[in-house]
Design a protein around this nucleic acid. Structure first.
Lengths: 329, 329
DNA sequence: CTGAAAGCGCTTACAG
DNA sequence: CTGAAAGCGCTTACAG
């Protein structure tokens, strides 16, 4: 491999000068610069990032920690991040926790040893150890999806999104609304969305039967199973609508309902959150919330980049959402 | 940051010894090893990968070049790769070409400067410059999805998959089968799949009207538009079935057909390739081919790893597929 | 405007 | 079994 020394020799200058020419730092006469650049072109020389990063403590790489690569949400966010980062010449180092909390923490430290300049964490839970790990490494971290104490966080407006959805169902005349949520370890998806549902039911004077409440695990299959259980449990006081906190679970529920011969939305209205491609093309099309995940990714990248430039940024950013009315209601 | 020198000092040994203990290379007395490991634990020391990689020329990072992150196919492949690589402690550096051929080449060289140990390329086209770029960098490269001359390639069996699909439609009694393909710059998806369709029609004595042939760009929208054009163009000799080379385009086509009041499969049978989640949940569910993308990713990682261990591997591997019969036929 | 020298944090012959 | 020394390929004060 050609190194900076080779270039220096060929250009008959010191490697100091080559470095300066390459990085546009310090003075280099126009003559010499041209001579160097020509040789760089010809040889196709590219500086070793390892050496560079060892020396400068910066790598041009941003680490991403995500819960699952195989969800549309993650993909869209990563897409947005990448688009923004690529513009500035940054690369992405990807790690996938497979929803394992321990790995989340491991990866934070691992990314540090790889000298990433910053980390974007698609957070799925909040716990002491995680927060501590983040504070212990002293590189900028940005969280998406959960509000992490002391960590700049980009969050979706889960509460209001879920509240809007619940209100909408109520205004459509539904009084018995079932709910499929997820574990409260996930404060945003599990906590906030359920809280909003419960609050709005209460505010509207509607009582919730606990038989209407199910807990899934984000998968389509769990939506199917939970819908089944809910229907079984609530014989005689069956719900007329279902609010599932993710599109995938809503779609699983719809599968079960269709199998059982329910008409949607007449006999059971269904709503989800996420605006997945599935939600659009399934029959009937699913009413859902668009969180603009790609924009979230872009915003996250932008905020991280600003941190890298030592700008001060706020600790919390709230994203907007959009209710998409379709045929499942 | 704590470095190997700090550890050496604290353990009262040389950094040579620390390095040996950490890497299990050479002799270290049990005593000393324990002393060192204890301190490593306590301090949470992690060796700088930049330094390591500068010295050893290896980084523990594999570069991935993919055409689009936001497709299920890519996601599944990356997932499989990651799963396999993570086991061996490798990380993934991700680059997205956005279907730009120039970027494909750029990224190959860029990944090299980042000292990746190998590259997996989800290839969408084959051209001289690309092949040259791959041969010029001397790190192992593995291609998925296209057969690249001289490069170990993992390919789907596009020809037979498409042939099976075509034959199946013919055996169901269809004689007028429309086709939505993509550019032949993509030899696998654009070339092979179309070739198989044409061959099987011919073998079965069926004539193809060129008005039945459309060319999309992988998007759902393009499937919609192409179906529309095909129907417009072929008035009087409308097809009774459609073979779209990807699920997404098939689904776009179905949307148009549904809008126009066609019943599927009675008035128009539709098949795709890809076994996307969408294909399963759309109504009617789509007959398609499962390429086992995740397994492909795993296999790719495994092959690359074997190359890294200097094992000789074959230049070409063909993957299996599975026809999934559903309700769109 | 240019260069010599030090040093980033590791690993690896080599010597003992 | 252990250590001193060299070197990987860069950048950056410092000096001129």
């Amino acid at each position: 491999m050609t190194t900076i020394n080779d270039i220096a020799q060929m250009a008959k200058v010191s490697r100091t000068t080559v470095s300066r020419a390459l990085n546009n730092s310090g003075y280099v006469s126009e003559d010499v610069r041209k001579r160097i650049m020509k040789i760089v072109e010809e040889t196709g020389y590219m500086p070793s990032q390892s050496a560079k990063s060892l020396r400068t403590k910066r790598s041009g790489v941003i680490g991403i920690i995500l819960p699952r690569l195989s969800t549309e949400t993650s993909t869209r966010v990563v897409n947005g991040i990448n688009e923004e980062l690529a513009k500035e010449g940054f690369q992405i180092l990807l790690t996938d926790t497979e929803l394992n909390k321990q790995k989340e923490i491991e990866y934070i430290r691992l990314l540090k040893t790889r000298h990433v300049d910053g980390i974007i964490l698609l957070a799925t839970n909040v716990n002491e150890e995680l927060i501590k790990a983040i504070h212990n490494i002293d590189i900028p971290v940005l969280a998406i999806g959960q509000e992490l104490p002391g960590v700049p966080s980009l969050v979706y407006d889960d509460y209001h999104a879920a509240a809007d959805l619940t209100n909408m169902l109520i205004h459509k005349g539904h009084e018995r609304i079932a709910f499929i949520g997820v574990t409260h370890d996930d404060p945003s998806v599990g906590g906030l969305r359920e809280q909003a549902y419960r609050d709005k039911m209460k505010v509207n004077g509607l009582e919730i039967q606990e038989t209407w409440i199910g807990q899934g695990d984000f998968s389509i299959e769990s939506g199917y199973e939970q819908m089944k259980s809910i229907l079984k449990r609530s014989k005689g006081q069956e719900p007329t609508a279902l609010f599932a906190v993710t599109d995938r679970m809503a779609i699983g529920a719809m599968e079960y309902l269709k199998e059982q011969g329910y008409t949607i939305p007449e006999e059971m209205a269904v709503v989800g959150i996420g605006a997945s491609a599935l939600s659009k093309y399934i029959t009937p099309s699913l009413t859902t919330i668009d969180y603009h995940n790609k924009d979230a990714g872009k915003k996250a990248a932008e905020l991280l980049l600003r941190q890298l430039k030592n700008e001060k940024i706020d600790k919390k950013f709230e994203l907007t959402y959009r209710l998409i009315m379709r045929n499942s209601v």
